[in-house]
Structure formats: C-alpha cells, structure tokens
Amino acid sequence: MPSQIVSLVVNGERREFIAAPGVTLLASLRESLGLTAAKRGCAQGACGTCTVLVDGRPEVACLVAVETVAGRSVRTLEGVAAGGELDEVQNAFVDCFATQCGFCTAGMIMVAEALLDRDPDPSEADVVEAISGNVCRCTGYRPIVIAILEAARRRRGAVSR
C-alpha cells in the first residue's frame, strides 16, 4: 500500500500530511505535525498519556490508525490554552499541585476536558471513572481528582457570571 495524504482538523485548523499505511494518530501528531504534548507511554492503549479528543471523545492516539480518522476533528493539549492563556483545567492542575513529573498530565487534562464538556458538574466518582484509564506514578491520584473537581467549579462559575 502506498502512503497517502491525510487531512485532519487539528485544534480548529485544517492540516494535511503524508501518512504511511497504518501509522498511528499519535505518531502523526508528534512526528508529522510537531505536536508533542501527547506522549508515547506504553504504545498499547494501557497508560492513557497519549489521549487526545477525536470529535470531542477521548481516544488513545497510540491505537488509532490515522487514516481511520481522516477528515475528523482532533483536539490536543496544544489547543486547550487558547491564545496562550491556560484554561480552567490547566490552572486548577497548577493550583492544586496535580502534576509532578508531568508525563501523564497531557492525557489527564484531555480526559478532564472531555468529561467537563459533557458533564459540567461531575461527582467525585465520575472524575475517578474518567481518569481510570490514565496511569500516574507520582501523585497518588488524589490531587488530580481534586483539581478536576475544582476546574468544574471554576468553569460553572465562569458560565454563571
């Protein structure tokens, strides 16, 4: 099979690049488009650090062949800080000390964005379930759960104002 030109809408912008057959969405983002926020952890869908949103849904980009999502909308961590300003989730991660080495952080924030997009007022159990596919070695998870609940509060507050 020859390589083909794949088109994606990445963080709101149409991007075209040449993809070898079977190349993953993660490799395309990192190597063809230079977007390195999504990390390659286990490369088998078990650690969650490569999580990006495809049409708003969290996907482990290491398991997605990029040609299967051609033409669709992909959101990465680079698209979260609009105009260079951190959003509520990112600021809550900073304020709640929810990051240490940072390797899981991009994936954690993307699943949090997807959760808050569909449920602005999640319970603690909802947050735990949302991040249950993402592995963190440093924090013990508690600060991450607290940060996402705090981000939800802040985002609801911003909407009501």
Partner: peptide, 17 residues
Amino acid sequence: HDFAGYLMPGPADIPVQ
C-alpha cells in the same frame, strides 16, 4: 509484561491521607 498485568492501585483505590 505490561500495564494490564502489572497491577497498581488506580484512582478508585486511594486511601484518605
């Protein structure tokens, strides 16, 4: 051999500290 078999506590298994 991988994260599926190498068990670690997840966010639902954390104690109150």
